[in-house]
Design a protein around this nucleic acid. Sequence first.
RNA 1: GCACAGGUGGGUGAGUGGUUAAAGCCAACAGACUGUAAAUCUGUCCCUCCUAGCGAGGUACGAAGGUUCGAAUCCUUCCCUGUGCA
Length: 319
Amino acid sequence: MELALIAGPQHPEPREPLLLVILGPTASGKTSLSLALAKKFAGEIVNCDSVAMYAELNIGTAKPSPAERAHVPHHLFDCVAPTQQVTAGEYARQARQILAGIKARHHLPILVGGTGLYLRALLEGLFSGPQRSEELRARLRHQTKQRGSAYLHRILQRLDPAAAARVHANDTPKLIRAIEVCLASRQKMSDLWQQGRDPLQGFSILRLGLDPERSPLYERINQRAREMFEGGLIEETQHLLQKYGAVRILNSLGYKQAVQMLKGELSREAALASAQQAHRNYAKRQMTWFRREPDVHWLRGYGDDAMIQNQAIDWIASS
RNA sequence: GCACAGGUGGGUGAGUGGUUAAAGCCAACAGACUGUAAAUCUGUCCCUCCUAGCGAGGUACGAAGGUUCGAAUCCUUCCCUGUGCA
């Protein structure tokens, strides 16, 4: 009693609505799990995968099929043209709007995807820096070509030593962004960081992570990449190439190798092997990222496994 | 059978007498990530030991011998691979 008084009110606050997050490496079965959970809990699925946002990139992105999407509302798939370019900030803004809508409908939002930065941008927010400036970037990139990335690092060193200490001198894209931030905002990026992020409010977040064993996952990745090649990835890529030219998004996993094959740089077999390798490397990077994600409830298996799905359901029900 | 070319660490591939446990690249493993993120970058990467270091010892460039103060590098024989001629 006394303890309770000292500790203050016991926060019997009305529970905030749940936001379920499903994360995990590529090919771990996030889509299957999300579908199963959406059916069980009246959910709506929100994509958190950078490439799946693009329309017309279907085979190589392993999006849920039209049939699957017919049963459950899906958001942020196919919402960007291949010629456009999304960013983490743009994604976070759109996703937050959609979450608000789902909340208003009293459905369970289920965030599914493998893009760690987008997830963090949505959940924790980004610092309030300026948006991209293409002209500035073009200029910086040009200078990098002539003088190397160490030159950029020296510039950043002068503009914002604290930021320079945190970005490696070889990491051109991050150097460019840091310099862009400093120049466009006329403030130090490290100062802007100090001001904090703008985390997502109004949800109680449940993170569910899929963590299958490494080598069988790699086998699955190889198999899935082969199926993509056999299922028309080359043809899809060729079509996109004809329609839009060599747009940036065609550098994505699988598409990149398909383009190389279409240009005669790789045999079909070599392109497949290269795509498989790239997917495996990607999966590993995702695991590194997600290991740092806070408060993840990990499931040691694949999301299409009924046992894993039941474990997920039990856990959500008891949360 | 003869003639050339060649056999290097998980793969590829440099190195042709001495800071060479052996470049680079890849894979693997670990890590970073605040608006291109399916991007980009970093570290480790023969074994053992410790006082954990540009540390000590061991093993290693098809095999076995030899030359040399010293060999992945030179010589001999053998084994294997590729190409050409039979």
